[in-house]
């Protein structure tokens, strides 16, 4: 049990420090232009990585499973300019359906 609390408190404190670092030290001040140019591209780089890893990532392997058709359906819905709500629910329904069909 004390092991559990050691993990909970260490992870909590370190995560709070990681999240707080930028905004507490640099908050409200514009970054130098070159840094801004880099940080602007952080959004597409990280979002694309999050899409890729959450769709194809397994436990130290790449896997193709029911998540992929769900995310492809989301891509089609986005292309048809569906609202985000429909995109997200549609992806979950397609993935759940494929999983159910696969037994």
């Amino acid at each position: 049990m004390s092991q559990t609390w050691a993990v909970v408190s260490l992870v909590g404190v370190i995560t709070i420090a990681i999240k707080g670092f930028g905004p507490m030290l640099l908050g409200g001040k514009p970054l130098p232009p070159r840094i801004t140019a880099v940080v602007t591209l952080l959004a597409p780089a990280l979002l694309a990585a999050l899409v890729a890893v959450n769709t194809l990532g397994g436990d130290r392997e790449l896997v193709i499973d029911a998540r992929l058709p769900g995310v492809l359906a989301a891509g089609v819905a986005i292309w048809l300019r569906a609202p985000v709500l429909i995109v997200v629910i549609g992806a979950a329904l397609v993935t759940a359906g494929v999983r159910a069909a696969a037994g």
Binding site: V11, I14, T15, I18, K19, G20, F21, G22, P23, M24, L25, L26, G27, G28, K29, P30, L31, T36, V39, L42, A43, L46
Partner: peptide, 26 residues
Amino acid sequence: NARYGPIGVSVAPSLTGSGSSRFLHA
């Protein structure tokens, strides 16, 4: 959680409030 380092740096310029407000948003 290491990705929250660069993510925090990216939102920092947009957070113009007090220290406690920035901490909450962070």
